[in-house]
Design a binder for these strands. Sequence first.
DNA 1: ACCTGAACACCGTTCAAGT
DNA 2: ACCTGAACACCGTTCAAGT
Lengths: 209, 209
Amino acid sequence: MARPRTALLDLERIATAAMDLVDETGDFTMPALAARLGVQTASLYHHVDGRSGVVELLRTRIGSEIVSAPRPDQSWEPALRSYAYSYRAAFAAHPHVVPMLTTEPIRSPEVLAGYERVVALMEKSGFPLPAVMTALTALENFVLGAALDLAAPEVMWAVPPGIDADRLNAALAAQPAEPTRADRAFDFGITVLLRGCADLLAATTAEPE
Amino acid sequence: MARPRTALLDLERIATAAMDLVDETGDFTMPALAARLGVQTASLYHHVDGRSGVVELLRTRIGSEIVSAPRPDQSWEPALRSYAYSYRAAFAAHPHVVPMLTTEPIRSPEVLAGYERVVALMEKSGFPLPAVMTALTALENFVLGAALDLAAPEVMWAVPPGIDADRLNAALAAQPAEPTRADRAFDFGITVLLRGCADLLAATTAEPE
DNA sequence: ACCTGAACACCGTTCAAGT
DNA sequence: ACCTGAACACCGTTCAAGT
């Protein structure tokens, strides 16, 4: 049963199984992943560089689900906005993966291509080049932080008993059920950050003329 | 040598050792933590609820380093701003701890007290109560995302060779060395988010009158 | 090249034994 | 109550053996 004619494993299948496992159980181990693929644990090491290699597969898999594709005729604002929303949607579909991806950014070809187009759009619109990375980084940081909020249970925002937090409790109680606190915060943050970018653009195009 | 008259361990010492270990090596294991404290691994379990208990110690330790203390005479804006900056400063001092704290928010008494005062200030200034949590959540998400950016090496933002990302590379090259990309993004994000809060306040106070 | 079975180091956790 | 030593289950990784 060693070395079948057609390989039992490939990166595609490993990535899918790992993603399913994390979605279902919140984490993965190499043995559990192998079991799900009907294979010995050691077999995984013929395809992937250990556990971190599997995490890397998850990273690129999530990256490939970020479908932004800003058309070149689009203006920077809706392009950036839809990019941020699709970014978060990809994370939202797999909340438990997000904490595994926080140490390194997603730098798959698709994501980089998306950035490339966004940068080109911003540049063409008149954004000063040194400011572009500042704005993009702020956006990316916010999206990541907001995505992490999705994984946290809502109950976590409850004030533990015995602590005197009168006004905080009132603010918590005043929240509407729909849309979610996380969703409202995301909408607010994106809107405000994009407005900040627009202000920055307006300030620079007004100055030199 | 079992059960010395004065206890060898206490939560304070465990927390400090764990923090030092993470700061130096980027992670911690129960055996390594015990070794640093000159104690058997099993001894830790008399004080702390396993590994996750140690993480909890790190969480509250970081929380206690968030010195915001907005004075009641302060207005909401500088209060929120200094809160966000001290939040990030606490994270920045221990970059490797941040990824361990992403699954649950910091809810230590000091942090909650800080939130309580901030909420009270915002309420007094006229913020609609249902909007308070939205704004605070957006701020918190951004701060967390920005803190994670501190742990990532700067090189990570380099475009891998073989990928055609002309404009992105130009934007990367156009960045000033100082202040850091992470620092600039944080300043930009906080400024813009606070301005968003101010706009929100202005809109609501203008409406009903 | 790809899968298996066995092996190893290491980690988190438990628990009886000691004071 | 608090520390030790020993033990256990489990995980990540390696490697020779097989096709």
